[in-house]
């Protein structure tokens, strides 16, 4: 690690020599990173750098070919995908991934109910649980969807669906938030909304943010990692990374006009 971090920060999530191969293709090669509590860790890199693969490994969706993932110093790479969420590792998806047929409130209720218990209760009505509704509403308020709680999710705008996506993750009351391009496909104003939201969230959670919008990442990140071709290029503060000549080269080499 070439990063200077104050010692009072707690490591929430850590990867050690993490690899993911698809046949002969090295989607992710030997990635060792530390993610700290109450910090926002941005991950950037050109297309195909392995950012989404990394998130998919961190949330248990893929199993690593090699290496390990530590959550609070416990190796978790072998546990079942659903167990990641139960440990408090929540994720949002790059492609909007909600329950389009249900109301926004119901979307969040599914998330809340997981930790409130009673999911195996086949007699108790789902509509009589006020506490559940309240927590779900809170999550909606937090992302600014309070007014849309009873609207069916397929009827709200794309930007709002992205917000709902985050609300659902928040409703599971996670400790770690893995956000996969939360601003993808959003207009400027909508993005601004998410940025403001993330500013309030980043001192409450350990956030891993994969995002193409460089301005947003620079504005939000406490730490920044650059990845290229499945490899770790550098990790550091925003300023350190910005001035790193290798980073510029990597992006210029890809033809992306970012800096």
């Amino acid at each position: 690690m070439n990063t200077q971090v104050s010692l009072d920060l707690k490591v929430m999530l850590e990867t050690q020599g993490l690899c993911k191969y698809w046949g002969g293709l090295k989607a992710l090669d030997d990635i060792s990173l530390q993610f700290f509590d109450k910090q926002l860790h941005g991950i950037v890199g050109p297309n195909g750098a392995g950012k989404s693969t990394l998130l998919n490994l961190l949330c248990g969706h893929y199993k690593p070919t090699r290496g390990s993932i530590l959550h609070k110093e416990e190796a978790i790479e072998a546990i079942k995908p659903y167990a990641f969420a139960r440990r408090g590792i929540g994720r949002s998806f790059q492609k909007t991934n909600i329950y389009p047929g249900a109301t926004c409130l119901e979307n969040c209720c599914v998330a809340v109910q997981r930790r409130m218990g009673g999911s195996f209760n086949i007699l108790r009505s789902r509509y009589t649980q006020k506490v559940l509704d309240e927590i779900a509403s809170e999550a909606l308020e937090k992302v600014g969807l309070g007014a849309r709680r009873d609207v069916v999710a397929s009827q709200i705008s794309y930007g709002e669906q992205r917000q709902l996506e985050i609300a659902m993750v928040l409703a599971t009351s996670p400790e770690v938030l893995l956000l996969d391009e939360p601003m993808a496909g959003m207009g400027h104003e909508e993005s601004q909304l998410i940025i403001e939201l993330l500013k309030t969230l980043r001192r409450e959670y350990c956030i891993v943010l994969v995002e193409h919008d460089m301005d947003a990442v620079f504005e939000l990140s406490d730490q920044l990692t650059v990845m290229v071709d499945g490899q770790h290029l550098t990790t550091g503060s925003v300023d350190q990374v910005r001035d790193d000549p290798r980073v510029k080269e990597a992006y210029l080499g890809q033809g992306d006009e970012v800096f």
Binding site: P81, R86, R114
Partner: peptide, 9 residues
């Protein structure tokens, strides 16, 4: 997929 990601088996 989403339901698994929310922690349900």
């Amino acid at each position: 997929g989403r339901t698994t990601a929310l922690g349900y088996n």
